[in-house]
Simulated scan of single mutants.
Amino acid sequence: MIITRLQYEEYSGEEQEWRLATVDFSEINLIVGKNSTGKSRVLGVISGLARLVDGQQKILYDNCAYEVGFSRDQDVFEYLLKIKKGVVIDERLRLNGKELFSRDEQGEGRIWNEKTQEFLEFSIPNDILVLSAKRDRLQHSYIENFHTWAGRVRFYPFGTSLGREQLAQVPEVIALLNGESAMDHSRLFDVYSRGFALWEEDYDKAILKDLELLGYPCTDVGVDQINIKGMKGFQLAAIYVHEVNLKSPTFQTVMSQGMFRALGMVIHLNYACFLGESRTVVIDDIGEGLDFERACLFVNLLIDRCQEHQFQLFMSTNDRFVMNEVDLDHWCILHREGSLVQATTKRNSPELFREFEFLGLNNFDLFSAGIFSAERGLRH
């Protein structure tokens, strides 16, 4: 299941109001725009909705509203959620135009029961989503689609350390390798260790192949104990690679930030590919910290893998090299006026894109000064 449409607002009518006008998405999406247009915020809305549906996060905003379109095979879902003062005041779900459930601010409503083929009334707490309270594979199997989607959304803030400073205790790693402890998908140690436990050398070989493609040729990757000055007595482990032409392994603690970001994403990406499950991959500041050549190689690798495995991909950037590398078919250009953010894509503005492509300029010029205006037109 993928997101095809999103409209969002928070604190409507108040000083801190922020609104995202309806934006359409495809399987591959590069969200571009100048600083402070809302790129990271849009990605946060997507990952935040997933955490809300999955139960990882309680209602965050006192006043917000989502209108989201999803597609799964030939089915189209329309989900509406409105929250005010921490209370759900409206929540509805439709499938191919047919209502599946609706509720009011008292938590009362009706839901389609697949087993009895009728609508049944319900009453739930007004601070809980119907998607959470009425989860039932036998009676409301359609709700399971949303939990599957939400549980497989992965958010990566590429412009951060991505956990480079996090070390693991040796017993933790051993337990993960033996399948004796629960896995935290946000921790690189957990992902690598579980991946190696499941697929062994094949997993390592896939990681090394991708690292070489990105310009980081290595002969080995793994987790090993590391000694850190001032922490004697602690059994700590770190991820390492053995770079070609170096005599000793390079541990994460001394890797360049760019190399560690590439390694971390390659580990996460290969885990998802080997697992063979659908994914929604959300990456903020894609390519940050990588040189021009590696940033381009990484973006192309990411797009190819997501298309091959039918993952939905959301990336954000304001980097001209990344923009020039990604086809305009995947672009979602944000422009903001005050508290309102609007988006332009090839799907909602085909004439604009056709006119620009005729000019023969670089992709980056589409929204640079003198070329693109917030009124969705080309400046001549």
Score class of each variant (00 low, 15 high):
A262R: 04
N348S: 06
G289E: 08
E325F: 03
I59K: 03
R320N: 14
L93I: 11
L340R: 13
L20R: 07
G109C: 04
L81K: 08
E243I: 05
F364H: 15
I283P: 01
E91M: 00
V68M: 03
C273K: 15
L80M: 10
D24S: 12
W18V: 11
Q310Y: 12
K205G: 05
E27S: 11
N270K: 12
A175T: 12
L93R: 06
V53P: 01
Y61C: 04
L93N: 05
P249S: 09
K134M: 14
C64W: 06
D327W: 04
W199L: 01
L49D: 00
N362Q: 15
T160S: 11
F298S: 03
F146G: 01
F196H: 10
G151N: 14
G215H: 11
D220R: 15
G233Y: 02
Q117F: 12
I124K: 03
G151Y: 06
V88Y: 09
S71Q: 14
Y192T: 07
K205P: 06
T250W: 01
L49G: 00
E91L: 04
G370A: 04
Q117H: 10
S339L: 10
G109Y: 08
I3C: 10
P350F: 04
I239A: 05
S193T: 14
A50T: 10
S123C: 06
P350Y: 08
R19I: 14
Y271L: 00
N227D: 13
L176A: 01
V322G: 02
Y271R: 04
K58N: 13
E121V: 09
H147F: 10
F25D: 06
G233I: 05
H330Y: 15
L213S: 13
I128Q: 14
K134R: 11
S278W: 05
G289N: 08
Y11Q: 12
D184T: 10
C64V: 11
I111P: 06
T160D: 07
Y61H: 14
F353Q: 12
K84H: 10
A343I: 11
L302S: 02
R187I: 10
F189N: 07
I89A: 03
F146K: 01
S373C: 09
I303E: 02
I28C: 01
G86Y: 05
I2Q: 15
E308D: 07
I83L: 02
L263W: 06
D190H: 13
N270V: 05
N145S: 13
F251E: 02
V322F: 00
V170L: 11
L131I: 09
V45S: 03
F189C: 04
E288C: 08
K39A: 01
R154K: 11
I371R: 14
L378N: 02
P157N: 09
L131P: 00
V241H: 01
N348H: 09
T253Y: 06
M265R: 00
L177N: 13
K58E: 12
E201S: 11
Y142A: 01
L302R: 05
E212W: 08
L263G: 00
L275K: 08
R164P: 00
W331D: 04
R5Y: 07
E14N: 13
S368F: 08
L334A: 02
R51L: 03
